[in-house]
Amino acid sequence: MIERTPILDVLTHVLLVLCIALVLLPVYLAFVAATLPVGAVNSAPMPWLPGDQLFANLATAWQREDLGRQLFNSMVMASGIAFGKISISILSAFAITYFNFPFRKTAFALIFVSLMLPVEVRIVPTYEVTANALTPFIWLIETVTGGMVDIRLRWNLLNTYEGLILPLIASATATFLFRQFFMTIPDELAEAAKIDSATPLRFFFDILLPLSRTNIAALAVIMFIFGWNQYLWPLLVTTEENMNTIVIGLNRMMPSMDAIPEWNVVMAGALIALTPPVLVILFLQRWFLKGLVDSEK
């Protein structure tokens, strides 16, 4: 719907500006705080204009916690989660949409139901499995043999990148989105590929994957940020400092009761922490919008 009335134009612009201000204000305050000396940041009210301590604060934050290492860890985790989620969900969507196998609908329903089970809900069993990835097999063997066999096997994923990534890489949302996209692709395309002697996997790699690239880009952005923002899971599964992610590092910077409340350093750390996701969005924005808005045919 396109309307051309000056009053509406003004109104929508005012609304837009207000919303942008609402979103940007906290970010701006964080930026201002990061540029102030510790005295200024704790004065009330806090100044609205930036000071000159930005680089000093950034340097302090960088050294206080091992931010370089943590940035790297977060990067590995977020990329791994984004990559894993997309690979797994595009393959399951492919199976669900293009193949007719027994219990196909059940499989889809189960995937869909898992939407209701985020990490927070299943965190205890997930932790147990991560602590020893062979737990389910041991349980299975012991149940089948009626407890006759006693197995001691251990495959510990705590404090590893696998432990950070694997429990988070199944995504019902992404599977559903890919399925919806695949359903908009005309059946004739798959049939033409069949007649062109393409095997299902050839069809997937030669036709489906290139056609999905805008969707993949959009999901990559969303999933990367999802992975980057993880807090609870990395907190549980990493106990060694060199495996901490930046979100945890940021939390550890928070001033404790009797220390000097160095909010300027904390905010400098926050700026560092939010830089990679912002860069990802800036670079993938074009694709991101394309994937969300139009389906390129």
Binding site: P186, E188, A193, S197, A198, I207, E296
Partner: peptide, 20 residues
């Protein structure tokens, strides 16, 4: 036989050209 093994070619109503 699979469609690809039948030595046939088909022209579709909507052409079904690979768009990319």
């Amino acid at each position: 036989l699979e469609p690809g093994e039948r030595d046939i070619a088909m022209v579709f109503q909507n052409y079904a050209l690979y768009p990319h």
